[in-house]
Nucleic acid binder design. Structure first.
Lengths: 239, 239
DNA sequence: CGCTTAATTGACTTTCCTCAAACCTGGTGG
DNA sequence: CCACCAGGTTTGAGGAAAGTCAATTAAGCG
């Protein structure tokens, strides 16, 4: 039985972020909730959407986790993002009308389906919602820039350290433990995301463990020395 | 005398993309034009905004070119984007209210200043403008994903080839020559953007030249064999 | 013209990848 | 309940790609 019991409540869900912030009337909130009522459950390996699928919905993760990836012209795949509960998928599909990449569940997961056209109309009438949508787009851009910094400037060691810290802090922000969590993705996906090979990732994990920075049993991780890890990641321990 | 005579007309400017697409009344267009009237001229090395500056404007490039970059916690810099005439800068600053990175002119350049709050209000009233803003955000996200693929999966050779093709196609789309152009950025910036060193970039340029793929004199480049270059880039020649 | 900065080229080192083998781990069926 | 199988994972040895250091050449600019 997998630990996919990390079900998020609406109060710290990114869908909530769409309505919570300032100035939504009771009625507006009600309308938004109607838009978000539909939900879907996926099991590990299921795809939420594939590259080329027509764009019609955004997906907000309620529980579980996903990887999203793009496919190069020559067929090779780059994992661009790991998405955790409370985060949104599908934003990059708006402009072209089709999903440029795919999203796949890493474990049993459930998502809210948000028909974008409805969200769009509602935003047209509700400025605070509008702002929130801009904000999410913008935040996503900022994160991608961080990812570029990671791939462009960090050593293999720094990349893995940064990923561990990143995931830790994302869980922490949602109220889960910052020091103990489960990596729901296989080593191969971690390696791909970091621009490395599975072997290199495995070696690094072993090394971090020997150095007393983390403790790993299979896919569950304990952070033992966050400061040292931050040092390696080149990202001053920030929380 | 620098070739900064690549002044873009409004008809293929990204500001134009904000108003052109479907359903703007004469009056709406007039209002948008009022918002975009202010412009600024910068010379090489001037910064349009710095990391930490408060966010208030977007900038649309009329002529010249820019690099934008983020700064890691440990001080090192990653160039995330080269921006050409007709493109927008500053979108990633919305969510935090400050610019997370900086943008610097690579040559004499001019930009339109777009106060975002005004743009936002106008978009609230004009659905087509709204859609266009989403579209630009989304497009940007898609491009960043491509950049991740570049850094994560391509060899040094593939990266440089991809950059040359990318710049070539962006000039071409705006009506300039696809096969002859000037790289306004120093080798160092190219290297940084590609996650390489200046020496490696230099060696690759020499090699491409020996192989008859390009011809380079200083910063001006001629593409001699686009197909072979696309092959190297892993991005089937697409135009 | 001379000075400063950028770009190239070369020799050597490091990092990470490749290939290959051994090892777990969880699920299946005897 | 245990043996077995398939996958993901770990570990090792050797090689290739790109980085570092250093010297040289070329290019912009006063």
């Amino acid at each position: 039985m997998k630990d996919s019991s990390t079900v998020v409540s609406c109060s710290n869900c990114s869908v909530r972020r769409l309505c919570l912030p300032v100035g939504l009337s009771e009625e507006d909130i009600e309308r938004l909730e109607q838009v978000t009522r539909k939900k879907t459950v996926l099991k590990a390996g299921d795809t939420l959407f594939r590259a080329g699928d027509p764009f019609s919905n955004l997906y907000a993760i309620r529980s579980g986790s996903f990887k999203s990836a793009v496919i190069g012209a020559d067929g090779d795949v780059q994992v661009t993002h790991f998405a955790l509960p409370g985060e949104l998928l599908g934003l990059d599909a708006y402009s072209g009308g089709v999903h440029p990449g795919y999203a796949e569940a890493l474990e049993e997961s459930s998502v809210c389906v948000l028909p974008f056209s409805q969200l769009e109309s509602l935003a047209q009438e509700v400025p605070a919602l509008q702002k929130q949508i801009y904000s999410i787009f913008s935040e996503e851009l900022k994160q991608e820039n961080e990812a570029l910094l990671l791939l462009g400037k960090r050593s293999a060691e720094g990349r893995l350290a940064a990923l561990l810290i990143n995931i830790s802090s994302r869980y922490s922000r949602r109220g889960y433990s910052a020091s103990e969590f489960v990596l729901s993705m296989p080593r191969m996906d971690i390696a791909n995301y970091l621009g490395l090979t599975a072997e290199t990732v495995s070696r690094l994990i072993s090394r971090f463990q020997k150095q007393g920075l983390i403790r790993v049993r299979g896919r569950s991780v304990s952070i033992l020395d966050l400061v040292a890890l931050s040092e390696l990641a080149g990202t001053h321990c920030s929380y």
